[in-house]
Design a binder for these strands. Structure first.
Lengths: 345, 345
DNA sequence: AGGTGCAATGTAATCGATTACATAAAAGAC
DNA sequence: GTCTTTTATGTAATCGATTACATTGCACCT
């Protein structure tokens, strides 16, 4: 079922078939009709491999993520993929599993498969590998990486905006002692979020003395453990921000398990706004980072590079916003707070 | 950076390069060493398109799912993908978005990309399209589809086992009136689950009179609405099973909102055991259908067909098991039940 | 009628690998 | 030393498309 068979059936040369399919130039309408009929009758689909080989463009894009079963990523993948399909591209997704050594496998596969561009949405980046891609002039998009180069774009997330809104919200509710559960601090993205939090505190006039911090792991269990840690402080915070929603969900569990309740005894704010956050008990106030937007913008940037619309790398901004739900409330009065503390002993 | 450049650098012909890479036949160890050095020095990766073209095998497998942002799928994708990578295959994932017309796009893309086999893990199947794939002798794997053919395997989920365990568990706790929140009944998979539930009731000696059923949509909002519906019954159930976990999470919310609590006033059992179910409040008792197993078995079946190890289609079983957590408990006594009902008014 | 121009189609090279077949060189047989 | 066998390597066809260039044929002009 190749182009020759179609050519034979339509009684024309393969060149005419190709021209008809690609709507190019001058093909007699009558011939075109014959060709289309032959195509339909034979259920012919042109082989994209052969096309890729001769054109030098595979119309495939790589998308490298950490782990598809981390709820942060599916939506990102989906919107990237949707945008790609709309524009006639295919997407090859690859997981690093958070390990930088698996990253080299991913890159290798991308090169072998001849993708036209790669979106690297993880932090496990090996500059060595990036150079390899760069040398091949493969357009790339990164998430939160500093340097722009020709063919290398960057999506810059404005963590500060949303986090500052969150801190202001808490301060407005009377909270003075605010805790933070970070992500694993060997991760760059976790660092960036933490920095944005500290910055937010400062710009709200809260000194660093008044906050306490525990390291989580961006997963539910880590949030649980970390929150227990915070609750054990003699002078525990009345509000807690977390580095992502899964952590907040774990924290919520620790709060409930300790016989306390959010937002009555302690206010809680997550980060990301994964779908699930609407369905926790209580629904989680969180800082939204739109993965839909992330995916689409990543594709757009790549698309522009791949199609040669921009040769130089671009910087694309993505914002964050506070989403108010029911896990935050007024700071407990000193008396109420003492009572609650007694209860947990 | 093609095979010719490598050949030039290693001062041999392209044939020798190819032979060296493919470990085939007799290549002088010294020559091989020279070749490998050239490959390393040039950072050469063979183009899989060219390879595919000449070999007729792309070493890519298609995986068609409904929607990657439905938490049922990511784990399935992950394990399928992991298994594929391990065996040197690439995976192309495609979403139907629950629409059968998008299915034809998926199939078209699979054919164009020349995949060596397709796993179709959705219910939106168009027999017309399947035939198209069948005609091309493309190995396929389906989920819960009846008919085996040459090159067509089928994964058969034993819903009954887990669901029967669930019903027995409830009956053992003294529940007599058991409700069911189904999935959207135009979906085949929703039907199958419902049928398994009815069957479970029967085999526990409960008549169909003693249960009530509401239709959900396999999403959280549907579970919420459906549970409100069940709670409004004058003679409401003391335990409820749901067609998937998202539905159960919605139901849980409705229960809490109504001022009731699980498992004290009402016991709740989900289906699927998505990761989240461990983290609800209370953690959800649910029937586990292992997506990890599903993904791996789908790959294995496909792999065997693709590699020509089996010509005929196979039937692969996947089981389900009850996972006990804290959303189920003893049926409330009549008095307690009356009191709770009063509270909700 | 003969020449010019353009539209429609065909011929064949090309992309980057694999592989059947050919050939050269080395080893072994006698 | 010649002939056969074996081993290592090279030559060129091939996969299925695209496309530069060549060719055909018809319309139009003078």
């Amino acid at each position: 079922m190749n182009i020759k068979e179609v050519a034979a059936r339509a009684k024309v040369s393969t060149a005419t078939i190709s021209r008809t399919i690609n709507q190019s130039e001058s093909v007699d309408p009558k011939t075109a009709q014959r060709v289309w009929r032959a195509i339909r009758e034979l259920n012919y689909y042109p082989s994209s491999q052969a096309r890729a080989l001769v054109s030098g463009r595979s119309r495939m894009l790589g998308l490298i993520i950490s782990d598809i079963s981390n709820p942060f990523f599916p939506e990102l993948v989906k919107s990237f993929d949707d945008a790609a399909i709309e524009n006639g591209y295919e997407v090859v997704v690859s997981n690093t599993d958070y390990k930088s050594d698996r990253m080299s496998l991913c890159v290798r596969r991308m090169i072998e498969r001849n993708v036209d561009g790669v979106a690297i949405m993880t932090s496990e980046i090996d500059s060595h590998l990036v150079e390899e891609l760069s040398r091949r002039r493969l357009p790339m998009v990164f998430l939160d990486l500093g340097k722009l180069k020709p063919f290398v774009s960057n999506i810059l997330v404005d963590y500060s905006k949303g986090i500052e809104e969150a801190v202001r919200h808490l301060v407005g509710l009377g909270h003075q002692k605010i805790g933070f559960i970070s992500g694993p601090l060997n991760l760059k993205s976790a660092h960036t979020r933490r920095a944005a939090f500290l910055h937010g505190l400062q710009s709200c006039g809260l000194s660093r003395r008044q906050y306490m911090e525990v390291e989580g792991n961006h997963r539910v269990d880590g949030g649980d453990v970390a929150m227990r840690g915070l609750l054990a402080y003699p002078d525990r915070p009345t509000a807690v921000l977390t580095s992502n929603d899964l952590t907040a969900i774990g924290a919520l569990r620790a709060i409930t398990t300790a016989g306390l309740s959010a937002p009555h005894d302690i206010s809680l704010i997550g980060f990301d706004d994964i779908e699930l956050s609407q369905y926790t008990q209580p629904p989680l106030t969180t800082v939204r980072l739109s993965r839909e937007e992330l995916g689409r913008k990543a594709f757009d940037a790549l698309f522009r590079s791949v199609e040669g619309l921009t040769k130089s790398g671009q910087e694309i901004g993505v914002s964050t916003t506070l989403v108010l739900r029911q896990s935050t409330g007024p700071a407990p009065t000193a008396k109420a707070s003492r009572r609650a503390k007694a209860r947990t002993r």
